[in-house]
């Protein structure tokens, strides 16, 4: 059996002595659209960022296609949260999308017309063909999100990791993103989305990972979304966990368990 696109083993991540992810074991199935769902502060984005090496992990192992990320850079595309950048930056939508091609263009070489064409194609794929020359600060929030998506599409990766692509976007963008996700799936690619809206998980996704500092459940949507699992994820926070989180700064805190 070929290795999974993304395999996370016993991943621990801590911010300022507080553990935010606890022994996370996640396996992402190839060719599926997977949601990472959970309440605020559950470590959903942290899981993605730590897997991609954007924030340091305390311990654990992350494998992309059975190997390190370094060896699979061009098979993995990341779509950050829209708020993570300054949209006042003096570039056009097409320029941003072309950034997804920089790796292919190589060091010190300029963006040439065929790259611009590729960027425009990617923009057309997300329904922004008419906006390619638009200044990015003149795009609506949803359009900005789609520009980010187009940048990832331009990378032509096999695994797409998206951080809240559906967060506060308009109906048109939601439709555009969904159709892109389904097209990627038809092409046999794998998509992972951090997703905040529990209502739409079963509608949009094949698989789900329920996360609340630790992995509560994972598998196909129908198996995962049980009342019991949801209560564990969203219900009253487990007192044990809360205590552990606050007490990690105390020496020998973990001995209690």
């Amino acid at each position: 059996m070929s290795p999974l696109p993304l395999q996370i083993r016993s991943l621990n991540v801590a911010y300022h002595r507080k553990l935010v992810l606890w022994d996370a074991d996640v396996g992402i199935n190839p060719g599926k659209i997977t949601a990472i769902a959970g309440p605020n502060g559950a470590g959903k984005s942290t899981l993605l960022k730590a897997a991609l090496g954007l924030i340091p992990k305390s311990s654990g192992e992350v494998l992309f296609f059975g190997d390190t990320l370094k060896r699979n850079r061009n098979r993995v595309a990341y779509v950050p949260q829209r708020e993570s950048v300054d949209w006042d930056f003096p570039v056009t939508a097409r320029d941003v999308v072309a950034m997804g091609l920089y790796r292919r263009i190589g060091w010190c070489l300029p963006v040439r017309s065929r790259h611009r064409r590729l960027a425009e194609e990617a923009l057309a794929d997300v329904g922004l063909a008419d906006f390619s020359r638009r200044q990015i600060n003149q795009l609506s929030g949803g359009q900005q999100q789609r520009v980010f998506l187009a940048r990832a599409l331009a990378q032509k990766a096999d695994l797409y990791l998206m951080d809240e692509p559906f967060a506060s976007v308009d109906a048109a963008t939601e439709q555009a993103i969904l159709s892109v996700l389904n097209r990627l799936k038809e092409q046999g690619r794998t998509v992972v989305c951090v997703h905040h809206d529990l209502q739409t998980v079963s509608e949009y996704f094949d698989d789900a990972v329920l996360l609340n500092m630790r992995v509560v459940a994972q598998g196909s949507v129908s198996e995962v979304l049980t009342t019991e699992n949801l209560r564990k994820t969203y219900g009253a926070r487990l007192p044990l966990l809360d205590e552990a989180v606050t007490d990690l700064s105390v020496p020998n805190a973990l001995k209690k368990f």
Binding site: G53, R73, Y78, P80, F89, M99
Partner: peptide, 22 residues
């Protein structure tokens, strides 16, 4: 001038640049 593309990517979206292997 030589690193114009790389520097602008770094300034715009560091996280993306990093995941992209820069």
């Amino acid at each position: 001038v030589a690193f114009f593309k790389e520097f602008s990517l770094l300034c715009f979206d560091e996280a993306f640049a990093s995941t992209n292997g820069w």
